[in-house]
Structures are given as C-alpha cells and as structure tokens.
Amino acid sequence: MNEILMIIGMTLVTIAVRYPVLVLVGKIPLPPAVVRALKFVPTAVLTAIITPAVLYPRSSQIELGITNEYLIAAVLSSLVAWRTRNVLVTIVVGMASLLAWRWLMSVL
C-alpha cells in the first residue's frame, strides 16, 4: 500500500516538472526569475548527487586519499568530460580507471 502511494506520488511530481512546463512555456513565457533559477538546477542537483557518492564510497567515513578509487576515477573522468564533452568517452575512461586503480591498490 505504501509502495503504491510512493509510486503514484513520485509519478505525479515527475510529470509535474516535465509536461506542464513543456506545454505552457510555448504559450506563456516563464517569469525571468524562475528561468534564472532553473538554469542552475541541473548543475546543482547533479553535483549534489556526484560528490557524496565519490567521497563516501563505502560508508559514512569520508575518503580523501589516493586509496579511494572512486575519487581518482571521478577526477580523471571530469578532466576527460571537460576536454572532450563526449559522454561515452567519459563513461569508458571513468569505469576503466576505477577498475584499474582498484586493481593497482590491491596488488601494491
């Protein structure tokens, strides 16, 4: 029951941020203040998801050293993303460097 409520609620709020905006903005322009704030939403939300996942990879313990393969892979893939702006290349470099660094740390 709770699960059904959760899925209905998630569905409604997700439709609410997509469809009405798509329909209305073509007809009525959004207030400039809303547009200005919206511009920063993807940047802020994506970064807020990425950084804890990278810095707290295993537990509630922050890992800032070179033994954190997630941090190494995130730094390398960020450089690649910045330079190439190619998502597939970024994914390949990120996953490969994560596994390579994990292996390196395990044999050292």
Binding site: G9, R18, V21, L22, V25, V45
Partner: peptide
C-alpha cells in the same frame, strides 16, 4: 520524504522542458 526528494531531484527536468518548449 521520498516524494519530496523525487520532486527536487527531478526539478532539473523543468529546465529541460523550458529549453525545449519554444
């Protein structure tokens, strides 16, 4: 809490919709 978090996490789609709408 789950629905509220979903709303904020997905709010970025409003920007996408606003950019595509015109």
């Amino acid at each position: 809490i789950i629905v509220l978090t979903t709303f904020v996490v997905n709010l970025r789609h409003a920007l996408y919709a606003a950019s595509l709408a015109p």
